[in-house]
Write a protein that binds this DNA or RNA. Structure first.
Lengths: 201, 201
DNA sequence: GAATTATTTGACCGTCCGGTTAACTGGTGA
DNA sequence: TCACCAGTTAACCGGACGGTCAAATAATTC
């Protein structure tokens, strides 16, 4: 009943894009509405507040990226290849954004979490949830690699924590230096952390 | 000539504290003035803009912390002990802030850089500079450790990059999860990355 | 085609924002 | 002692902020 609309989806896409490339505090509700081509009244018809929109935008972004993650981390893929492919995805994604906007934009979840962890409990919890979803792919890959004797780690979960932290750190560093080239260190750092058995390049 | 004042220093301290525990965008010039007990007119007598104050506040914070860094990274200290002591400093500092404010607050430079890298060139450049100053301590320690055969790394500078990224990443993760306990991984992650020869615990 | 209801519209609200101004104050150096 | 000037004060600015609202509209269901 009633009419249908794609305004909600347009708002989610506009919000993710704008917040990702600047920051939560640096983007106004008006900015998002203009980009989405939607009136402010419609915004508040679909979302109770700016921070609720942000939470919904992160969820929508994840749902959009999930098939690609499932493909990269497919159990059809050898465990270390999953991680290497993922590094390549990050590098390519950031390089593309860098060409588009002139900036390394980093991880949208980590950016929001870092900015708002002490200020907005809902966004803090959501970004933690999003990062945890990514973590579970890494953990599974590392556990598989461990079982297959491809790496030298005692505790797969602990190693996965170390790996995901390093990825986050490298992304921040690349963002601050605005140099996507730093991301070529992603794979070697990861492999070193895992004590991966070297294979001929 | 003219009168003297400590308003500038009070503004620097208030700004650092407020921005560190919330965010640049989440703190207003009025907030900073109230905390410093200074009128807004005085603010703009000392600083041309909010972002200039932030840049000055980071510089002042570094100058304040520098003696402690020099002590930890003294060449009197064995290279790996420098790194271990530094991990302990970070852990203690973050735990203290967590008790004070109820939040893991992370690295002030990385927070600001992450929030503003795409929006404010002066702050981006300053945070990069600050992180680079820290980096040079790590690099020197790792180079010394390498010379003394304490670790297994080929390129000390590359290893230092990896280590500093991991520290940044772990701090972000601890902030997002609001759990200072994660920082106990600082030292093991670092040592694993460096291929440090194990010593009895 | 009428009733229903989700969506759209754009004007509106009070507040807070970063920043400005001009008059005033008081410590310092000569 | 007194002139000078760094520092202080508080009112003020225009515009942007997040959020509200009531009336208008159009798609859907029956």
């Amino acid at each position: 009943m009633g009419r249908t609309s794609d305004a909600r989806e347009k708002l989610l896409a506009a919000a993710l894009d704008l917040i990702w490339t600047s920051s939560y505090g640096g983007v106004s509700v008006d900015d998002i509405c203009v980009r989405a081509g939607v009136n402010k009244g419609s915004f508040y018809h679909f979302f109770p507040s700016k921070s609720d929109l942000a939470v919904a935008a992160y969820e929508a972004h994840w749902q959009e990226k999930r098939p690609a993650m499932d493909a990269v981390f497919s159990s059809q893929n050898p465990p270390l290849d999953r991680l290497i492919d993922w590094c390549r995805c990050i590098q390519e994604g950031q390089t593309e954004k860098h060409q588009q906007y002139g900036f390394v934009v980093g991880c949208p979840y980590a950016n929001a979490g870092s900015e708002l962890a002490t200020q907005d409990p809902k966004i803090r919890a959501k970004t933690q949830e999003m990062l945890d979803r990514g973590f579970r792919y890494i953990e599974a890959a590392i556990a598989d690699a461990q079982r297959q004797g491809l790496i030298d780690v005692a505790d797969a979960t602990a190693a996965a924590k170390q790996v995901s932290s390093c990825v986050l750190g490298l992304l921040i560093q690349a963002k601050i230096e605005n140099d996507p080239g730093l991301l070529s260190e992603l794979e070697p750092t990861m492999m070193r952390l895992l004590g991966a058995k070297m294979v001929a390049a």
